[in-house]
Amino acid sequence: MINEFNELKKTAASSKALIFYFGAVFLFISYIVFYQFAPLGAPYDNLVLNSITSFAALIVAGVSTAIFLHYVPGDHPRKIWKHIMIACWLWFAAEVIWQVYAFLLEEVPSPGFADLGWVLGFVFFTFALYYQYSAIKPAHVETVRIYAIGTWIVILLIPLLLLTLWGAFTIEDYIDFCYPFADLAVGIAGLALVFIFRGGALMRPWIGLMVFGISDLLYAWAEKTHMYAWSVENGNILSLVIDSSYLAAYLILAIGFLGHWMLLRRGLRQR
């Protein structure tokens, strides 16, 4: 813990990082204000809220691109960050598409192009995780590959089997049902990486992914149990927690990526 705290202190000491942290806090507070008090009225409050989320996704995609460009061809982490970068841009595209649908149609079609972005994003994150684990366990690349493929089979098959058994299979339900499993898988993979890199700077980028998994899983649970719709209708705090945790996940992912980018830029410090 001392290592982590010292590292955080060093990172926070940079003026660029401080600006970024304040920016992230500002975005988060603005989100809560617009969510709770809706000062502009429909549909503009939703537009602002969705724009804040899309903006956070844009920052994540931008920083991941900067990290990717920092690596030279031949660097193993370049492979990891290439896939993270593509995944982040796909998620950003998905956020924008979803936002446009929400603004123009109010009811977002499902499945839609936004889902395509999110699902493909998960695929590219899987590749990134695969390359990261391959670097950690070079002697067990085959095992890592089997785990990655196995996880995807589970993610795709379990919802299919369950929905078929219940006789409620539709594409919309299937995709909705796949998300929690994909979130869980990414969350666990992220958590494991945070555990492996614990105390080291390399754990930072993966913290956000872990939070993403948790946040998305929370949303999927609330949606499936109709708690989310109930909460929105009754102005309950649950929907605020779930929606703001989704934004928080993007912001934490961005902060983690930024920390990594700064490490690459400044290099290791003398003790």
Partner: peptide, 22 residues
Amino acid sequence: SEIFEHCSAVIGPRLLASTLRE
């Protein structure tokens, strides 16, 4: 010790220890 200190700050002491064990 110096090398490990720097490596540990990036990859974490746990992964460094497991690398050394290997």
